[in-house]
């Protein structure tokens, strides 16, 4: 089982998932269908539990009830690194790079899930993000916020995952950089993977998404096409 990768772009099925931290429940029963090969945007106000749901799907947080499936594969009970090697790529909120390692050393770590040699990892990354090429010997912690996110996203670029989870790619970045990053997410999805995006910038996210849902207070409160969700999002944010 462990050597077998996930099929390309499987659907993500979230079934009655409850989860939290310690005794505090954050997700109160989530049901969600992310269709195979879609770009799914998950929106919602701060503290709604979006990152927590991504952590459950990625194996970081155990669900206390319910189950998540990637295609046929149940996530529960599997270690984070095992899921990563099976083809699940998570770009976490805020800190997707090792600050004390150089750009090149970060890319060397990416080869754990990439299954291609370092040389090829470097070539793919530098082709997509030219700015990183000149900074390959620089400590990742000294890169600009945008460059750090490029480096973080390059893990998805080189590891050809079946499922990509991205948490707030835009955090603290200028709109131009955000546009560049989302363009890359679109390109990635086109290669055949299921993408689940968490984003605060509603219009940016909905522009690339093929489907979307809104989460408030640990529950999914609306789901539909991006255009439907644009309206719903506004009222959800205003209501809260």
């Amino acid at each position: 089982m462990s050597g077998q990768r996930l099929p390309a772009a499987p659907p993500i099925t979230v079934d009655g998932v409850r989860a939290g931290y310690g005794r505090i429940e954050v997700l109160h029963g989530i049901d969600l269908q992310v269709p195979a090969g879609s770009i799914f945007a998950l929106l919602g106000p701060n503290g709604a539990g979006k990152s927590t749901l991504l952590k459950v799907i990625g194996g970081h947080v155990r669900a206390t009830a319910g189950e998540v499936h990637l295609g046929d594969l149940p996530v529960g009970g599997r270690s984070v690194e095992h899921l990563a090697r099976l083809g699940l790529c998570t770009v976490p909120e805020g800190r997707g790079v090792f600050p004390n390692l150089t750009v090149r050393e970060n890319l060397r770590i990416w080869t754990y899930s990439a299954r291609i040699p370092l040389g090829e990892v470097e070539e793919r990354t530098y082709t997509a993000f030219h700015r990183l090429a000149d900074r390959r010997q620089q400590a990742a912690g000294t890169l600009s916020g945008g460059e750090q996110q490029m480096l973080a996203l390059s893990r998805a670029l080189v590891s050809d995952p079946s499922v990509l989870l991205v948490d707030e790619l835009s955090m603290g970045l200028a709109p131009l950089v955000v546009a560049e990053l989302y363009e890359m997410v679109g390109e990635l999805a086109a290669r055949g993977m299921t993408v689940l995006l968490v984003e605060q910038f509603v219009t940016t996210a909905l522009a690339v998404a093929t489907r979307a849902a809104i989460m408030t207070n640990g529950r999914i409160t609306a789901e539909g096409s991006p255009s439907e969700m644009a309206e719903a999002a506004l009222s959800a944010y205003l209501a809260s």
Partner: peptide
């Protein structure tokens, strides 16, 4: 060596290392 780099990385962020596919 990748192993050596990962050995250095695990101190910084064990969780990210797991996310990248190596066991902390």
């Amino acid at each position: 060596f990748r192993l050596g780099v990962a050995l250095r990385a695990v101190v910084d962020d064990p969780e990210l290392l797991a996310t990248a596919g190596a066991s902390p």
